[in-house]
Each structure stands twice: as structure tokens, then as C-alpha cells.
Amino acid sequence: MLTFTFLGTSSGVPTRHRNVSGLAVQSAAGAGWLLVDVGEGTQQRLLQTRLSLHDLEAICITHVHGDHCYGLPGLLASAGMAGRKRPLTLIAPRPVWDWLAATRACTDLHLPYEVAHVDVAAAPSPVWTASGLRVDAHALRHRVPSYAYRVETVAQRIQLDVNALHAAGLPPGPMWKALQSGEDVSCDGRVLHSAAFTTRTTQRACAVIGGDNAEPALLREACEGAQLLVHEATYTQSILDKVGPGPMHSAAGQVATFAQSAGLPNLVLTHFSARYQAAAGLAELEAEARAQYTTGALWLANDLDVFELDAAGVLSRRTLTQRVAATPFHP
């Protein structure tokens, strides 16, 4: 029901294999999609996917730091040069909008479409609804105002009772489709009511996507009923203790401890410091998280990983080349 394409998983600076922050979110409702953060180089990563800037509905920026927004003007310009005319919504703290306005003025950037700003600090909930998605914002703790976005999709599934239709003497055809659409139909002098031949079920999927954050527990309310948390794990605890409170980031163990206490069935870590780019460093982050998070599925995201969350809360991962990635950890 929800698909997540990671366009950048590095913290602060890009590395040889990881870009800085960017995450595309799609629902099964249509081609429209949502982009959370636009670090420098995001549009190059998008060229390696099937996502189109024409179908981009909204951009959510978690905070004003450059590794989360420096790619925004270029991406908007490229969309305009590709012929985009549809309006676009930018959900972001006010400083992001002010910076974008200054950049547009100083670089003579004229867009052939409207960009509407939603000030995430002042907007009521939900901050955005479209393309089968509802988005709510939740404040975090960082050096500048930072936010998490809770993304939820709900769909109604209508299933025909085939046995009952055959028993009623109604052969497959247009009337079946009408009944499934909620319409009553007339057949041989009888009125067949849709409610008598269909079963309606509600399916939902919900994920919380965090920005930079020194206090994962601030997301407890946001994570109620969620099936997935995507959160930064910039450091291990030992490195966080060395760098001190100044950067205001989370350690992998902190996030995992919170996810365990919140009963989250899936946890995806991202936003890794460049010091962990080698396999040994990533293994250290993973080991610290696994020690605290023992009841759900844990993943460390890579650039261009695609995660799919179904209505049952099951998260699966594949790459853009359709290769099946490693099996997640389960207790």
C-alpha cells in the first residue's frame, strides 16, 4: 500500500555510494508521489528510478539544514524545464521557503508552475492530503526546528461473493462490475442489492518518517498505530558520547530502544555518518540496534532501496534492479 524509495541515506555529506537525504513515498492510489527532503543530488538519483517529476505532488522538508534541502532549487528548475505546469506544494519550515525565495531571485529562476508553501510550524493537521495520502507533522528536537511526517493511506476494498452471485443466477458480466461499484441492479424482475453480494474491508498502511532528531521518544504519539518508523541513526552511542550534545542527532541504540518500547513492527535506519560507510562501520550500527530492538524487522537502508509496506504491516525490500535483498532480522 505504501512504497518508499530511498534516494539518499548519508548524513551531512555524500559518499561514494550514498547521497544525502531524500525519500520518495507512493501509495497504491495512483501515479502521484511525495518527496521527503531534497538533499543535493536528489534529482540525479531520481533519474535512476521510474519516478517522474510530472507526477510529484508535494515536497516535505524536515528542516533547513543543507543536506536536506540544497537540492530543492535544481529539482524545481528541472521540473520546469521538462514542461511541468501543474502546481506543486512545498511543506517546510519558514526558513526553507525564505531561502528558496532568495535563491530564485538571485539566480533568475522563473518556474512555469506555482509552488504553494505550507508552513509546517503553523499548519493545522493534516498538513496535506492528496493521491491517497494523509500527511501529519510532528515536532522533533534538533539544532533548528525539525519535523517528522506521518504518512497514512486508507483504501476500501470491495470483494464480490461469487458463490452467492452464481446461486442467484447472475452470470459474470457488467452487472457484477456494477454491484462491486456499489450499485443495485435489476435482473429478471428482481432487484439485487450490492450490499447482499459484496464484502467491504478497510485497508490501511501508516509510516512515520523522522527528520534529524536527538530525542526519538518525541515520536511516541506519532507512532501510535504506525507499522513503520524511518529514523536517522547518525552515530553509535560511543561516538555520540564523544561528539557530545552539540550536533543533536540520535544513536542507533537510542532509536532501537524507542522502537522496541513503542511496539513498532518495522524499523528502517538511515542518515548514517560518513565514518560508517565501510562494512565494519555499518555492522557496528546494526549490532547496536539489534541489541535493543528484538521484536520487529530491522533494516539499514541503502541508496535506491525500495521498501513496500502492505496492509498487514509486512515490510519487504527490493532493489531497483528487482534483486531480492537480504532477509530482515526476526527474533
Rank of each mutant, 00 (worst) to 15 (best):
L47T: 12
P112M: 08
I209G: 13
P145R: 07
G246E: 15
G182V: 09
R157D: 14
I61M: 08
V154D: 05
G296E: 10
R104W: 09
Y276L: 14
P265R: 05
G39M: 04
L34Y: 10
S273G: 15
H110E: 14
N266P: 04
V13M: 12
E232Y: 08
L140K: 01
G83N: 11
L111C: 01
D37I: 07
L218T: 00
L267N: 09
T295A: 09
R275F: 15
T236P: 03
E57F: 02
T5C: 09
T107C: 13
A278N: 14
D212R: 12
G313A: 04
L109E: 04
R317Y: 07
T295K: 10
P245G: 07
A178D: 07
S27P: 08
A195H: 14
S131M: 10
A252F: 13
G313T: 12
A251M: 11
V36L: 09
L111E: 04
H330T: 13
E286K: 10
A29C: 06
P14E: 09
D136I: 01
A139S: 13
L240D: 05
A31G: 04
G189W: 14
V243E: 14
R323M: 06
G66V: 01
A123C: 00
H54V: 08
F197N: 07
T5D: 06
R104F: 02
W128T: 03
L165Y: 05
V230P: 03
A130N: 08
R143L: 14
S11I: 01
K177D: 15
E152D: 10
V120C: 00
H271W: 03
T107I: 10
R18K: 13
L264P: 07
E215I: 00
L320I: 10
A326C: 08
S238W: 11
A58N: 09
P14V: 06
T295V: 05
A274N: 15
V162D: 12
V135P: 00
I59F: 02
V255R: 03
A82R: 11
